[in-house]
Design a protein around this nucleic acid. Structure first.
Lengths: 282, 282
DNA sequence: CGAATAGTGTCTGTGAGACATTATCGT
DNA sequence: ACGATAATGTCTCACAGACACTATTCG
């Protein structure tokens, strides 16, 4: 039994005769928020290394937003899925494959790109900075890691991006409700397009997810001390945690490697690694 | 100071001269999962009414998937934001405005539509069935509400859709991991395109969100008893809850209206309404 | 030993889950 | 009184938060 439509066509006939309409169509892009952790060796050797959350940005070499910093991304090919486009962009930007990749949100305001109608699906990637080489792509003058800090201030939130090598600071004040927030730039340097909002969405998602999933380990090296792991959590969450409680919560997720830290001027911590049996779905 | 690019153009000049490329572009659509609650008056008058979660489906009157049931949706206009497209579709389908609307996920597999490349952003809407009139749209023969049940079975999950008026059953067995699941149809009737996956994503999101947000009240009439509210939670979550615990959890979110149920053959329950001060961001 | 960090024990309050008990309506 | 549901009380357990204490390394 073959179903026929109002014009008497079967599905095969219909598809063979199908002509897509001539309606104008938006361009579709993927934008990648790439997060990593940087270990900042402290000047004072008696102290342990600080950990910072970082995001990969590129400096635009074309209009619009010429010379401004932006989230890496690019157009989705017509015969490539959204996820594949994201994986390809990530490979082009970082040289890495098989990374953690999660779709975040799709941005569809009409004039978000002044050139033309562009709809962009944003993805969040978590990488281990140790096995990575960021390089500038086609549309970029430069690529660089910026530290991220999101802190509570008297009148809302303060989002700070900073690159120490280039001495670039990009700050925004986030006003109104935490949902659907508005970002007021506080510096001459600003992010291109609506990329602050995308970054904020990604950071919020990451903050929420590390509370109930083993996502952090995607950012960590193979082996790490619990103190380092705690500092990574603190960098992402933007607040201090209590050591004893943190260790109780994290204990079931990690395994003792039997090795110890070395070369530090204080009691060395034990090295742990992720207990893979908790990978369920991540 | 006006920045000039490699060709010596300012941003204004660049944008004036800009010609979008002739690359083929995907079509972009929005698909709407519309949830509502149906109150099923029990045959036995001594018993209280059951509550069921329902989803609005349309029956396709065109190829592909001719005559099959599908999630309502449509193309995004070139000068219309994604959110506006979703609001428009919802108005066309339900006649309602200002409903709860939340973006879910964007589906970008290459051949998800056999006609052409279509990227679809899915939205979830929650409506109160009392102030609503569903009607068939342009691409639909018919529109109807289907009850949804998602239950644990021995070998995975069972997703059941049922419309009693038309006596249509659409069932899927959901295998493999709960993340990235595969759906095996169990009936001749099936959902069009990748719409099972979209529906499953929406249901999962709803289940998660009602645990920690006051989302349910978007599905409820102005006034309701706590027993009804509990049955709605149970219909959405697919499991029974303990009355005493449920009431303790929900107590801060509702206000006593002072009125009581009437016309029931048992002790009448008090009518409550949502305590709007908890609307924060929803 | 002192400085710094590693690592553990324990008390508190909160909230979910399970279960028992009392109250109120119509017939 | 009975059947049905409404509404509340209380016990337990798990867990987060706060804090105090002991242990180990280097110099």
């Amino acid at each position: 039994m073959e179903l026929r439509d109002e014009k008497g066509l079967t599905e095969t006939e219909f598809l063979a005769a199908y002509q897509p309409g001539i309606y104008p169509r938006p361009s579709v892009t993927v934008d990648m928020i790439v997060f990593a952790i940087d270990s900042l060796a402290n000047a004072n050797l008696r102290k342990s290394a600080d950990q910072e959350l970082e995001v990969l940005l590129i400096q635009r070499k074309n209009h619009p937003f010429l010379h401004q910093w932006a989230i890496p991304g690019g157009f989705v090919d017509i015969d490539e899925s959204l996820d594949d486009a994201a994986k390809r962009e990530l490979r082009e930007e970082t040289g890495l494959e098989n990374l953690y990749l999660e779709q975040l949100y799709t941005w569809g305001a009409v004039h978000r790109d002044p050139r033309m109608r562009v709809i962009s699906t944003s993805y969040m990637a978590l990488v281990n900075k140790e096995d990575l080489t960021a390089k500038a792509g086609d549309d970029a003058m430069d690529a660089a890691w910026f530290s991220i800090r999101l802190t509570e201030k008297q009148d809302g939130l303060l989002l700070q991006l900073y690159n120490s090598e280039k001495d670039i600071t990009i700050r925004y004040q986030c006003v109104s409700s935490p949902v659907d927030p508005v970002f007021l730039p506080l510096d001459a340097q600003m992010l291109a397009f609506d990329h602050v909002q995308i970054l904020y969405t990604a950071l919020t998602r990451l903050r929420n997810k590390i509370e109930y999933t083993p996502l952090v380990f995607r950012l960590m090296p193979e082996e790490f001390t619990l103190s380092t792991l705690q500092k990574v959590y603190e960098a992402i969450l933007g607040r201090k945690l209590l050591k004893a409680n943190f260790r109780k919560k994290i204990a079931p997720l990690v395994l003792d490697t039997g090795r110890k830290e070395s070369g530090v001027n204080y009691r060395p911590g034990k090295y742990y690694r992720f207990n893979d049996q908790y990978t369920t779905g991540f």
